[in-house]
Design a protein around this nucleic acid. Structure first.
Lengths: 303, 303
DNA sequence: CGCGTATTGTGAGACAATTTCATAATATTC
DNA sequence: GAATATTATGAAATTGTCTCACAATACGCG
């Protein structure tokens, strides 16, 4: 006994049209075809779905049960079809973003807020969990965008440059190193370094400065939230290295100073990795444009 | 773009089995057939439902959306199929009863209570509204049983005798007619007759006694509820004629008397009309048996 | 890296289901 | 009871689905 949506559509049409002939018309099909179909359906169901003794065919009790299913299911199916239409036209889609850089939350969140207003039908999400194999996840279509500062040449993956940033040293104005114009690797030997709780290979201080110089800080303290890191730094419980965009917002009203790493400062570039087939999708292009420009604009004093 | 349940089943099977080949196995179908089907489905949808770059085929974001529909819809369809299986085996069905005789409520209700315990899957209902054309409604399958005391010979309709009853005269023990051993038509000329608010053609007093004798009561008062009729009778505000079964329960503790109509009493027979194709259905036979025996048993003092 | 294995894709023909056409049968209406 | 509207049926045409055989592709392992 295998029902198909065709049968649900038939039942509904016959009920709506109030008769088999009219229903056939409505469905752009012969009355004969419908008659055959109804017969087949009743054979399958093993149940009389219609009252035959009356002439404009009417649903029986069992037929009404069938109709109720149709009226619950068909709208859902149509909703799916609508979804797919939107998808084809690039008006809807999925935009699940994996961020390798822990602090990217700070600028990404406002960007996504703005994105949602423009593309309400796109399913937006940030997935911090899979920072590890973000690029394989992108290839497997587990996520749709990976934000990273380490572009690799991968088949089917595009890397779009977003913006440059500078990892800067942050310390309390009371801290001895605050006296220097810039800090170098050796300066870290005697400090407590506060970092995000991720592997060193994804922390700019280490990859760009300390690992090459083989310098180990006196102590490392791992803290999840950027705001908390800044709090600890301001109260001189340690120093940190954070991307400049994190500091732009709150610089003025807190008791800490920022200094370049090395005399000339370090510059890094942030990229968005996407599958090439998605890169030119309208909403994806929109996101990339937003992510290129938005984080650089001055922002209000929100957290 | 026409989806079918087949497609929902396919998506679900592929997801469950974790691959196209295994899914094909599970569905007793060739792997090739499934491949063709998936291709056709994606063509129709105009959307990639699967990630092709990986080898055990996996659902894409759009595919997940499809899967979610499948998981909502398929169980409902299976529930319908189960319903129909029950229907075929006569374990479920509809039992909507039209009662022509207004007082039948009194004995029918307890009968249905008992019926429901035995046939929980049958959709039982009493429909008092269509007392008028109850038999046409039966033919049109608007209802499934008609309780009536006037059998007609109708095509496709069976009349099963239920039980005999006697319409009896009820009056306050203070009423002058209470002194008689039995009442006749002429006795009604000077009384206020309390009846149900239905046409005379469906009231035994009129069809069996007053109309043939061309007697008109002094006044007629129409009351809906049996309990209220008895109340009014007991307080000597009028007399009534009710089926004996109504009086059996409450006779002892109230201040009214019952008398036969005419010297020998009038006997009427109650029938259940059903469509012949339904008459032998197990639950229908059960109902008829119950309705034949149950109303005659002594009952507790409920309303 | 290359080979074997597991998995999916493709094309042609067989098969099954659905539709149409023509027409019969049956209700409904006036 | 004829006229009309509606549904049913059978055979042929059409369309869609499945199978078979084999090609193509991804994955894992040494």
């Amino acid at each position: 006994m295998y029902f198909e949506l065709r049968h649900l559509r038939t039942i509904k049409a016959i009920n709506d049209a109030g008769g088999l002939a009219r229903a056939a018309d409505q469905m752009n099909i012969t009355q004969s075809a419908l008659s055959h179909q109804v017969k087949g359906l009743e054979d399958q169901a093993g149940v009389e779905l219609f009252v035959r003794r009356t002439k404009p065919l009417r649903l029986s009790a069992a037929g009404m049960r069938f109709l109720k299913l149709a009226e619950r299911v068909l709208p859902e199916v149509e909703a799916l079809e609508e979804d797919f239409r939107n998808l084809r036209q690039g008006r809807s889609g999925r935009l699940h973003i994996a961020i390798e850089c822990h602090a990217c939350f700070e600028w990404l969140f406002p960007v996504l807020e703005q994105f949602r207003r423009a593309w309400p039908d796109v399913d937006v999400d940030i997935r911090p969990g899979l920072a590890f194999d973000a690029l394989p996840a992108l290839q497997r279509e587990d996520v749709d965008v990976v934000v990273s500062s380490d572009p690799e040449s991968l088949d089917g993956i595009d890397f779009s440059a977003l913006f440059d940033y500078e990892p800067v040293f942050v310390a309390s104005s009371q801290h001895p190193l605050a006296a220097k114009d810039f800090v170098v690797a050796d300066d870290f030997r005697d400090v407590t370094l506060i970092t995000y709780p991720v592997d060193r290979s994804r922390l700019d201080v280490f990859t760009e400065l300390l690992l090459p110089a083989k310098v180990e800080p006196r102590a490392i303290r791992q803290v999840e939230l950027t705001a908390v890191i800044l709090l600890l730094v301001a109260s001189n419980r340690g120093v940190a290295v954070l991307p400049d965009w994190v500091l732009r917002d709150v610089k003025l009203d807190s008791d800490y100073v920022t200094r370049p790493l090395t005399k000339r400062g370090i510059t890094r570039r942030l990229y968005a990795a996407t599958r090439d087939k998605d890169t030119s999708q309208p909403f994806m292009a929109y996101l990339l444009r937003l992510a290129r420009t938005e984080p650089l604009k001055p922002r209000r004093m929100s957290a």
